[in-house]
Design a protein around this nucleic acid. Structure first.
Lengths: 336, 336
DNA sequence: TTTACGTCTGTAACCGATTACACATTTTAT
DNA sequence: ATAAAATGTGTAATCGGTTACAGACGTAAA
């Protein structure tokens, strides 16, 4: 049995097979200019018989744009990203776009390289969750993911201040005692907003709290942090973590020390990564709509690409409190 | 301040600026034919001054191939994939390739669509972890990821039989009692191999075991399974789970029932997803080298694309046992 | 009947690169 | 000294599409 290598059929062959010119085939394909019913039918038949699919590269060359969007993420292995990516991929696909992946360690200059690469590939637009993404002076539309650079950027993000408030209020309602706030890196705008939200709730109250600041979101630092806080602070009754990873690490360390959760120490996380419901006790956390965020961001980008009318250039999504078992029972509210 | 839209510089402009023909620029760029030192210098200067980057689309059109590889994954949100993707992305980038993402629900026909799309984009090759990926009759090189289709496929995968043996031996060494095997969907070849490995160790011994078969790898089914097994089976002393997700779910359910791990019930997982070290007690599991797998697969694909000599068309990576705290203490070996 | 417009089609230019080919010049071999 | 080979360069064809343009119809308006 001979192994045939299928060559892609070209528009020229379709034209010949249908007995018309390439221009007519192209017009029929794109429903552009005038095409008679007769010609259209012949073309459609030829396309079907030859199994013709237009070469997107040739198209892209002429159009100076393509059906691809670039995606720039800082560290894919972050457990929060899979859902985000799924949302992006799904929305992009539904709109006829595919996604080129770019992974960049935060702070590296790879971001610029990728922007150049995207430009070389004629991508139609870029989704970026990377801090230093410059618009490369180019005409590529960009939509920021959960990070906002400048005032006039297009962006889809979650209301981190509100998320911080939600988390703080949840512990405030539940016999807080001494509160430890594990704050994310201050280089990450979202982390700052969360802290602002937390403090805006805690400050007016009379709880005592302390802040432990971290420098990254890696698992290693999460474990180290968990070890440190139990050494550094005498008595912690509540922990508000900057994300679920840190919350999990703290819970593990506490359990290893024989502390009961939530009785001896209660913990609240942030993100609601899928695992948070699979551990014991279930982690109470602030849910970020990762899938939705990705989906909407891709949608917004496509709207920009198509120059559709855009109602709002920045979409703010609301996080919400997901109650599981890592917080204590709610105290009776004093004000009814 | 006027907002300038930077247009991409073309080879023609570089040629004019350098005072040579486009052919010479192209030759200098690709270090192909003869180019005098003088011409080369002029070209390099022009490139630098104009900030020229070749249009990859135009290149791709002529070459009938591109600097992109397609990646087909069944359900990105699987926690095992982020590391895999990171490996792929890194290796691809080092080799000058970028990655187009394709997410496909297992069993859907989207896989075929994506293969067509990849062909339309002139991708240089495809990495696929999807069962039904046909080679589309086309000339695109394919490397399978952790799934093997036919005898003559190129593939990078882990030795699942060995992984199964490792897991089974680990519990066999630790006062197994009644063993429950949670087997993955039999539609997944890897799951079958793991089961084969497990049974090859358990059968010659005198432990009693039962098999619970699952149909997917979703979190929902993991939770449901965890609930079911404690109803269906009277006394379980050891659980060998098909992956960490299921192991986690079982551990949670057990802990909720007041069972102590590993004293009352011991659990071993599979995959070693990053969370397994963040839960309490730490999950003993079989580590799959996800990053390495992705990295090597991309490497193998690039070798195929470049028609390099390939020593082995299928690379088998060894899983290894990662001991944490979810298994009991090892018994004294009888033949020590 | 002439003019105008709408419909339909094909030829050829174009997008931005690569490379076959022709030609010129230099170097090497005989 | 002369042939042969190596070096250097530009023109034009090519990849596979899209579309401006021109020409050929048919029909409606004047």
């Amino acid at each position: 049995m001979t192994k045939w290598v299928k060559r892609m059929v070209t528009i020229k062959e379709v034209a010949k097979h249908a007995g018309v010119s390439v221009a007519t085939v192209s017009r029929a394909l794109n429903k552009n200019g005038y095409v008679s019913d007769e010609a259209r039918k012949k073309v459609e038949a030829a396309i079907r018989e030859l199994e013709y699919y237009p070469n997107e590269v040739a198209r892209s060359l002429f159009q100076k744009t393509s059906k691809m969007i670039g995606l720039l993420l800082p560290d894919i292995s972050n457990p929060y990203f899979p859902l985000l990516m799924k949302g992006i991929e799904e929305s992009a696909r539904e709109n006829g776009y595919s996604v080129i992946l770019g992974n960049v360690e935060e702070g590296s200059e790879l971001g610029e390289d990728y922007m150049t690469l995207f430009a070389q590939q004629n991508v139609a637009g870029v989704l970026s969750a990377v801090e230093g993404t410059l618009s490369h002076g180019s005409s590529m539309p960009i939509v920021m993911l959960d990070r906002v650079l400048e005032e006039d950027d297009f962006a889809v993000y979650t209301n981190d201040v509100k998320g911080g408030k939600l988390a703080a209020q949840a512990v405030l309602d539940r016999d807080p005692g001494n509160v430890l706030i594990i704050a994310g890196p201050k280089s990450v705008p979202g982390a700052i907003d969360r802290l602002i939200g937390i403090l805006s709730v805690l400050n007016p109250s009379d709880v005592t709290y302390q802040i432990y600041e971290t420098t990254s979101y890696t698992i290693e630092e999460a474990e180290e942090t968990a070890r440190n806080i139990f050494i550094k602070y005498k008595k912690i009754d509540s922990v508000i973590a900057s994300n679920d990873l840190f919350a999990l690490a703290v819970m593990k360390e506490a359990q290893q020390k024989g502390l009961r959760i939530p009785d001896d120490i209660q913990v609240i996380g942030y993100d609601d990564i899928p695992f948070s419901q699979l551990i014991y006790p279930g982690l109470t956390t602030i849910s970020q709509p990762a899938f939705k965020l990705g989906y909407q961001a891709a949608d917004l980008l496509v709207s920009r690409i198509r120059k559709n009318k855009i109602e709002e250039k920045r979409i703010k999504l609301d996080p919400k409190l997901v109650i599981r078992d890592s917080l204590r029972e709610k105290m009776e509210s004093e004000d009814g």
